[in-house]
Each structure stands twice: as C-alpha cells, then as structure tokens.
Measured scan of single mutants.
Amino acid sequence: KLNEKEKELCQMVRLVPGAYLEYKSALLNECNKQGGLRLAQARALIKIDVNKTRKIYDFLIREGYI
C-alpha cells in the first residue's frame, strides 16, 4: 500500500504503516472538509508526539496530498 517515500517516512518517524495510513486518512479528510489544513489543526487531530506530527504534515505537503 505504501510507496517508497511513505515507507522511508514510517522508518524515519518509527511508525507502523497501519498507523501512518490512519493518520494520513484523518488529515486528508480534514483537509478536504476545511479546504486546507494548518499544522495546529493536524496536531489537534492526531494525538501523537508533535515532532512526528510535524514530519508527517510536512511530508504530506511536500508530496502534494494537502
């Protein structure tokens, strides 16, 4: 299910792929509902370490998901 970049992200932030996909889905759904997504909203949405949230958020922006 994951592409190579997503696999690298999961290894870097030490997330299991299932958890990453869950977080990605939640962030994309919220982004679609709101018409955009700020980091503060992402942090409130997924209750994990803020540094991990930041890396996931930055990755999703860089890859054009949000």
Score class of each variant (00 low, 15 high):
65 Y>H: 14
25 S>D: 13
58 D>T: 06
4 E>H: 05
46 I>C: 12
1 K>M: 13
32 N>C: 08
11 Q>G: 09
21 L>Q: 09
45 L>N: 05
50 V>G: 10
18 G>K: 15
46 I>Y: 06
66 I>V: 09
63 E>K: 02
4 E>F: 11
50 V>I: 13
59 F>A: 02
12 M>D: 15
2 L>S: 01
33 K>F: 05
33 K>Y: 12
33 K>R: 13
14 R>S: 14
11 Q>M: 08
23 Y>I: 15
28 L>M: 15
41 Q>G: 05
55 K>R: 11
53 T>H: 01
24 K>P: 01
53 T>I: 11
15 L>F: 00
6 E>K: 03
33 K>D: 08
18 G>E: 15
28 L>Y: 05
26 A>Q: 12
64 G>C: 02
24 K>Y: 00
39 L>D: 06
56 I>M: 05
47 K>N: 14
34 Q>G: 10
39 L>Y: 11
34 Q>S: 11
22 E>L: 08
20 Y>C: 02
22 E>D: 07
24 K>T: 01
60 L>E: 00
23 Y>C: 10
8 E>H: 11
30 E>N: 05
47 K>D: 14
33 K>I: 10
32 N>G: 11
46 I>H: 09
66 I>T: 05
9 L>G: 00
46 I>K: 09
8 E>F: 05
32 N>L: 10
17 P>H: 07
49 D>Y: 08
43 R>Y: 13
43 R>M: 15
57 Y>S: 03
55 K>Q: 13
66 I>L: 14
19 A>Q: 14
37 L>R: 03
40 A>S: 15
36 G>I: 02
18 G>P: 06
11 Q>I: 06
35 G>W: 00
53 T>M: 10
35 G>D: 09
20 Y>L: 02
35 G>T: 04
58 D>F: 03
63 E>R: 04
3 N>Q: 09
17 P>W: 02
17 P>F: 00
5 K>V: 04
9 L>I: 07
4 E>R: 13
37 L>N: 03
43 R>L: 15
34 Q>K: 14
40 A>M: 08
59 F>T: 00
29 N>M: 08
17 P>I: 00
35 G>H: 04
57 Y>I: 07
26 A>S: 08
17 P>S: 01
29 N>A: 15
43 R>N: 14
15 L>P: 03
22 E>Q: 12
14 R>M: 04
48 I>L: 15
65 Y>N: 06
65 Y>C: 11
40 A>Y: 07
47 K>E: 08
27 L>G: 01
10 C>Y: 01
22 E>C: 07
9 L>S: 02
39 L>V: 06
27 L>Q: 03
48 I>W: 07
31 C>K: 04
15 L>E: 03
57 Y>V: 08
62 R>I: 02
30 E>M: 11
62 R>G: 09
53 T>D: 04
58 D>L: 03
1 K>E: 14
29 N>V: 07
6 E>P: 00
49 D>G: 11
26 A>W: 05
32 N>T: 12
40 A>T: 13
45 L>C: 10
26 A>C: 12
5 K>P: 03
16 V>Y: 12
8 E>C: 09
57 Y>H: 07
10 C>M: 03
25 S>I: 09
44 A>L: 01
24 K>R: 06
40 A>Q: 13
21 L>K: 06
4 E>W: 10
56 I>D: 01
8 E>A: 13
56 I>K: 00
18 G>H: 11
12 M>E: 15
3 N>M: 03
15 L>T: 04
63 E>M: 05
10 C>T: 03
23 Y>A: 13
40 A>H: 10
56 I>S: 02
48 I>S: 10
41 Q>H: 08
42 A>V: 05
63 E>H: 03
64 G>H: 07
60 L>I: 01
33 K>S: 07
23 Y>W: 07
13 V>T: 12
26 A>F: 05
65 Y>W: 12
30 E>P: 05
22 E>T: 10
20 Y>R: 01
33 K>E: 07
41 Q>K: 10
62 R>F: 01
49 D>P: 13
40 A>E: 15
46 I>N: 06
24 K>V: 01
43 R>I: 15
29 N>S: 12
38 R>L: 13
44 A>V: 01
64 G>S: 06
5 K>F: 03
5 K>L: 05
23 Y>E: 00
20 Y>W: 04
11 Q>Y: 05
39 L>N: 07
38 R>T: 15
26 A>P: 01
39 L>P: 09
53 T>A: 13
66 I>D: 06
40 A>N: 11
27 L>E: 01
7 K>Y: 08
44 A>K: 13
33 K>P: 03
66 I>H: 10
66 I>R: 03
46 I>T: 13
38 R>M: 13
4 E>C: 05
6 E>G: 01
64 G>N: 08
20 Y>N: 01
45 L>G: 08
21 L>W: 08
22 E>W: 09
19 A>M: 12
24 K>S: 02
55 K>L: 14
45 L>Y: 05
30 E>D: 07
61 I>D: 04
25 S>L: 09
9 L>V: 03
49 D>N: 11
45 L>T: 09
4 E>L: 10
57 Y>E: 05
55 K>F: 07
6 E>R: 02
28 L>E: 09
28 L>R: 09
21 L>A: 09
64 G>E: 08
13 V>K: 02
32 N>F: 09
14 R>G: 15
28 L>K: 07
